[in-house]
């Protein structure tokens, strides 16, 4: 519920492979920013996840678990 969201990281989309190490979420590597945003949007629409930009070439997708 929207009252107290507990976000879990669902996926990582990046153009900068070196910025992401390990972790529990799958990492999608894109060749440029446009492709990164496209992949992020598709994943978001499919999985109902929220996209957050970390401004280092990486965006993360989080899902709010109730």
């Amino acid at each position: 519920m929207a009252d107290s969201p507990a976000p879990t990281m669902f996926a990582i989309v990046t153009t900068n492979k070196e910025a992401v190490v390990g972790g529990m979420a799958p990492v999608f590597v894109a060749c440029n920013d446009v492709e990164r945003d496209r992949i992020a949007m598709w994943l978001s629409r499919i999985t109902n996840a929220i996209v957050h930009d970390l401004h280092n070439g990486t965006v993360i997708l989080t899902v709010n678990r109730s």
Binding site: D37, A40, M41, S44, I50, V51, H52, D53, V59, I60
Partner: peptide, 8 residues
């Protein structure tokens, strides 16, 4: 909040 998608 932080909105990551340019479309949104």
């Amino acid at each position: 909040m932080e909105v990551g998608l340019p479309d949104s």
